[in-house]
Structures are given as structure tokens and as C-alpha cells.
Simulated scan of single mutants.
Amino acid sequence: MEHEELRRRFAALTTAHLADACLRAGTPVRCAPPPLRPLEPGSRLAGRVLPARHAGSVDVFFEAFEDAAPGDVLVADNAGRTDESCVGDLVALEAAAAGLGGIVVWGLHRDTADLREIGLPVFSLGATPTGPRRLDARPDGALDSAVVGEWTVSRTDVVLGDDDGVLFLPAAGAGDLFALAESVRDTERRQADRVRAGVPLRRQLDFPAYLERRRRNPALTFREHLRAVGGAVEE
């Protein structure tokens, strides 16, 4: 999926829709840990992963920018450290100048007021005033992959972010997952509209029938029932 199509289609979806699509497709749901949040509420990002593993110097980020394509999202792996920041205003300005679509930091940022003014979407674990006070040896493959929580991501992945958090998808299967997410969204919207019109969700989903079927078959799950009636509320 090309970058512009990715952004256009994600504009009408949420990470929750796409997480549900992953579950429905049997694809691993690669969510960043919940503490990874947008600097500014309402921020959204969507783009190819541009990975970089930080070892105490921002040169690894600048080197990553040399090969970046417009719309890429820097995924800065600082091992989830909370004793230093690794991204500040100058890195964000340079990322914006390189045409990047945002920054995801598995670690902390600083220069919060300046980052807000720059306006590039930034997701991180929070802020601290200090930058790195170390310079470690650069790990092998520092520009090949990044780790966020339990997940290792690379340029074969795309990253999506909104107020619910950050989600990684395989780029090769993104189109199919987006189609599933759009189906989930449309079903949920129809259900929500009917609830607002006075038709409770339990009636739409024939919940009493589910309870009766479960009484006869205790192994029956609500998700199986949802599949049978074409409903969407969980996957």
C-alpha cells in the first residue's frame, strides 16, 4: 500500500478497528505497551517504519533520515529507558525537514513545548529534561530494526498511531487488514446508529437467543454467536 493510500484510509479508521482486523485475520496484534502515548491528544500518524536503535547519540537518527522516504515514521528504540531522553526539538525539526510523518520513541523525549510548536506527531513514554549522558557502542543492525515493547519491527512494517496507542502491521498484508477494519467499522457504526434510534444492542444481537443456546451448549462463546448473526462488538 502506497503512503498516500495508507494515510487516506487510516484517516477514516482507528487503531482499535485495525487491532480487531488483526484478530479476525489471525495476525499477531502488535500493540506498543500502553504507556506509549501521543505527546498531543488527537495526534495521528501512519507510515512505513524507519527504525533506528539509539546508543547515546542522535547521529543514528540523522543517518536513518538519509534513506528515508516521504511519510516514513521514525521508530526510535531507546530500550524503553526512563533515565534520559533521546529525541528533542532538533531531531523533530530535522525529521520534518526530511519529510517524515512522525516519530515513535521507545523511551522519552524532551523540549515538549518546542515539539508542540513543530507539530510533527510524536509518541513516547513521556518527558525528562536530560539528554543522554552516555555513548555506548552502536549495536549491529542499528538501522535495520527497532524494538518496541515485545515487538521487533523493520521497514517491512507500517506503524499507525492515535489516542488509543500505537500498532504495527506487516506492510505486505496491510491492504487486506485495512479492508477487514473497514468492515468492522461499518458494522459497528450501523449498530451504534440503531442504538441511538432506540434499538438496544442486545436486541440487535439477539442476546436472549444466545443465552438460551449457551444454556443448551455451555461451550458456546459469545464470539461464535456474533459470527452467526453478523454482529461486531468484540473479536
Rank of each mutant, 00 (worst) to 15 (best):
residue 131 G to S: 10
residue 151 W to H: 15
residue 133 R to K: 10
residue 130 T to D: 14
residue 152 T to M: 10
residue 141 G to I: 07
residue 130 T to I: 08
residue 149 G to P: 00
residue 137 A to L: 12
residue 131 G to F: 14
residue 147 V to W: 05
residue 131 G to P: 11
residue 149 G to D: 03
residue 133 R to S: 15
residue 156 T to D: 14
residue 160 L to A: 03
residue 140 D to S: 09
residue 144 D to A: 14
residue 154 S to V: 08
residue 131 G to R: 12
residue 160 L to S: 04
residue 129 P to W: 14
residue 143 L to N: 05
residue 134 R to H: 12
residue 153 V to L: 07
residue 153 V to K: 11
residue 149 G to Q: 03
residue 141 G to E: 10
residue 156 T to L: 10
residue 134 R to T: 09
residue 136 D to Q: 12
residue 131 G to Q: 11
residue 160 L to V: 15
residue 148 V to D: 02
residue 145 S to D: 13
residue 156 T to A: 15
residue 131 G to T: 05
residue 153 V to C: 04
residue 134 R to Y: 08
residue 138 R to C: 03
residue 139 P to A: 13
residue 142 A to R: 11
residue 155 R to Y: 08
residue 152 T to E: 15
residue 153 V to D: 00
residue 134 R to D: 00
residue 140 D to G: 09
residue 146 A to E: 09
residue 130 T to H: 09
residue 142 A to N: 10
residue 131 G to W: 12
residue 151 W to A: 08
residue 144 D to W: 08
residue 133 R to N: 13
residue 128 T to I: 15
residue 156 T to P: 00
residue 155 R to G: 11
residue 143 L to A: 02
residue 133 R to C: 11
residue 148 V to Y: 04
residue 128 T to P: 00
residue 132 P to N: 04
residue 147 V to T: 11
residue 148 V to I: 05
residue 132 P to G: 02
residue 159 V to I: 12
residue 132 P to V: 06
residue 138 R to M: 11
residue 148 V to E: 05
